[in-house]
Amino acid sequence: MAYRPSPYDVVEASRRVWVERWDGPAASGNAVFTAILRSQQMLMHQVNEVMKDHGLTFARYEVLAWLAAEPRSALALSWISEVLRIPPATVTNLIDRLVADGLVRRVPHESDARTTLAEITDHGRAVERKATEELNEGVYRPLALSEAERDRLIGLLGELRSRGGEFDTSRSDDRIARLDSTRGGPAGR
């Protein structure tokens, strides 16, 4: 189903109602929330159209993308839970579906018998690559913002998330550097 544009700006309409009923800070907060929500809905619609063509949900795709980026092609289920910020039971369900579809296999950890790893299969790598190419071409590259606007928006949303307690700002840079070094990323190259 095609995403149909609204005949008016829902965010501005909502902001005006809030200004009439409440106050400026509440109205602008409502407008920020509504703008983020509507933008997320619009972008998720575009992403879901790509995912549907590959028999994936975005959550399953995210697991594949992390596994494909991992030099060893395998990650602990607990690590996936932490990085994707989803409960362990949800990770188990995601991995079950990926295993059933032949995209991932469970393997024992080489040094910790209590830990199970999810390892991407060749088929999973091919599906992830094709889905990522389509996301890049159909959603991410054509995003209706310039590079400078994207950077500014990422920064503003990072501040919102940081101040809202979504991540530990005192440890974030060190943790990301550690992730990069284990993957051979920018800090590890």
Rank of each mutant, 00 (worst) to 15 (best):
E133T: 02
R125F: 06
A68H: 06
W22I: 01
L160N: 02
S111A: 04
A177D: 13
D174W: 06
R175T: 10
R60G: 03
W18S: 13
R38P: 00
P186C: 02
R171D: 01
H109Q: 07
R72T: 03
E133F: 09
F167W: 06
R129P: 00
S6K: 02
E133G: 08
G155W: 00
L64W: 07
R15S: 14
D9L: 04
G102L: 14
R171G: 08
A187V: 04
V63H: 11
D173S: 07
S14Q: 14
L145P: 00
W22T: 02
V19N: 00
Y140S: 02
E166L: 15
D101E: 04
G165A: 04
V91M: 01
E149Y: 05
V83I: 12
A144S: 14
S181W: 02
L84G: 10
P108D: 11
D96Y: 01
D168A: 13
E149R: 05
A148R: 07
L77A: 06
L77C: 04
L84A: 04
A69H: 15
W18T: 04
V63P: 09
S28P: 00
W66R: 03
V63Q: 10
G184R: 09
I86L: 07
A131P: 02
W22G: 03
Y8D: 03
T169W: 09
T182A: 12
E166H: 12
R15M: 15
R16D: 04
V83F: 02
W22V: 03
L153E: 01
L179A: 06
P186W: 12
V104G: 04
P7H: 07
R60Q: 13
G55R: 10
G185Q: 13
I154L: 14
L103A: 07
R178A: 15
E49N: 08
D9G: 02
A144G: 09
T34F: 14
T132L: 08
A144Q: 13
L135H: 07
E119L: 05
R178F: 02
S14M: 10
R161D: 09
T57H: 05
L157C: 03
G185Y: 11
G188K: 09
L103S: 06
A35K: 04
D180H: 13
L157G: 00
T34I: 03
L160M: 10
R189Q: 13
V99T: 12
T116F: 04
R60C: 03
V99W: 08
A100Q: 13
E134D: 10
R85A: 15
T116P: 00
D23A: 14
S181L: 05
D53Q: 15
G29E: 07
D101V: 00
F58G: 02
R15K: 15
A31F: 11
V139L: 08
E134K: 13
E70K: 08
E12V: 11
G185L: 08
S73C: 01
T182H: 09
E166C: 12
A69S: 13
R163A: 09
N136R: 14
A76Y: 01
M44I: 05
T121D: 10
D168L: 10
R85C: 07
E49A: 08
L98C: 05
T92D: 11
K130Q: 12
R152N: 12
E49G: 11
D174S: 09
L64Q: 10
E49H: 11
S172C: 10
S172E: 05
V50Q: 02
L153G: 03
S146Q: 05
H109P: 06
Q41E: 13
P5I: 05
P71A: 11
V10P: 03
D23C: 12
I120V: 14
P7A: 09
